[in-house]
């Protein structure tokens, strides 16, 4: 099968700044693909390379097998939901949504009908007459979504679309985006710095660091088998163990990651290693315990309801052997 989007050793340098550096990526058709990374890691530049607002300084991007080097943004069959939504303030919601059709030369009544259809898809029936300024943040987000979908793109690009929404709305929109993607069967490429969002929505996740792809995989692979200490730390704040510590904790002399929730605390004399509680952080559904294990700091997480040790208390730490995930590189 031809992949929807393919990066072949793509670089985008701005002078000395390597925003994107030799990236290889394959995004399968119909998948929900997340680009995850901290700000400045190159994920948004990658998105803009697909939409055509940036051109690679080296390498090639193929969209459905076709080289896109010479294709301007307005001739690409991809559409974008912008981070700031970029709704046209002088047009009402219906004209905003119908804009792509107007550009194509679709007649007024046909494009209005289609716009209403798209508005119904995002649960904004009857909002056509309003101006963007009269809408809430969440509603604007839906209009931006409807506007980007009206041209029936083969790939929909979403640039941190939920960043400006509050938590409750964000969670609702996550579910809605996911179900919309499954219903339409369009390839979604989603840029986010929120690892929870990426893990819960995407079929595949690419973790970006310093303009390069640190790891690509399913959310479970990314979380359970991080390829290096950056991924381990950025996705779910894992405990990263350098080789000497791994050895001390009963593994080979390799870099390893140990998820906080995999650590069991034993107030008795047992445990693989022993540590002293130096801090507690209450998270609601769990409590994070920071421990000092012979000079190395470890974080453990105990679910709500379980006994929480006191600060200064000495406890034993234990985990199942397979929880200690060995990493290929640092």
């Amino acid at each position: 099968m031809i992949p929807a989007v393919e990066f072949r050793s793509v670089s985008r340098h701005f002078g000395a700044v390597k925003a994107v550096d030799k990236v290889d990526l394959t995004i399968e058709e119909g998948s929900f693909f997340a680009m995850l990374g901290p700000s400045g890691s190159g994920k948004t530049t990658c998105l803009r390379l697909i939409s055509g607002f940036e051109s690679p300084t080296a390498g090639e991007i193929r969209i459905f097998g076709e080289a896109s080097g010479a294709v301007p943004p307005n001739r690409r069959n991809v559409n974008t939901v912008f981070q700031d939504y970029a709704l046209f303030p002088h047009m009402n919601v219906r004209d905003n949504v119908a804009y792509g059709l107007m550009v194509k030369g679709v007649g007024r009544s046909a494009r209005h009908a289609k716009a209403e259809e798209m508005l119904a898809l995002v649960h904004l029936d009857g909002f056509g007459e309003r101006k963007p300024a009269q809408l809430s943040g969440g509603q604007r987000q839906r209009v931006a979504l409807a506007r980007a979908l009206v041209n029936e793109p083969k790939v929909l690009l979403l640039d941190e679309p939920l960043g400006a929404l509050d938590l409750k709305l964000r969670e609702a929109m996550q579910d809605e985006l996911k179900s919309l993607q499954q219903r339409l069967g369009i390839t979604f490429v989603f840029v986010t710095h929120d690892q929870g969002e990426a893990l819960s929505m995407a079929d595949r996740v690419a973790v970006f660091a310093d303009g390069r792809v640190a790891q690509v995989g399913t959310p479970a692979e990314i979380y359970e088998q991080p390829a290096n200490r950056f991924v381990a730390d950025f996705v779910g704040c894992s405990n990263v163990l350098p080789p000497d510590q791994t050895q001390r904790f009963g593994g080979p002399a390799r870099w390893a990651s140990l998820r906080p929730e995999a650590i069991r605390l034993d107030p008795g004399q047992g445990g693989t290693v022993r540590g002293r509680v130096t801090g507690l952080r209450y998270l609601g559904a769990a409590t994070r315990v920071v421990l000092d294990c012979g000079g190395h700091e470890l974080a453990a997480q105990i679910p709500a309801g379980a006994a929480v040790p006191a600060v200064g208390e000495e406890v034993g730490l234990g985990w199942q052997v397979q929880s200690l995930h060995l990493m290929e590189k640092e």
Binding site: A86, L87, H90, Y99
Partner: peptide, 27 residues
């Protein structure tokens, strides 16, 4: 006029003249 608005217009298929007429000038 925010740059993202001009990009949104291009993203939706508009060429330079169409963007000028429908987005830049009205704004």
């Amino acid at each position: 006029v925010p740059k993202s608005m001009l990009e949104a217009s291009a993203d939706l298929g508009a060429g330079g003249l169409r963007t000028l007429w429908s987005v830049t000038l009205p704004l």
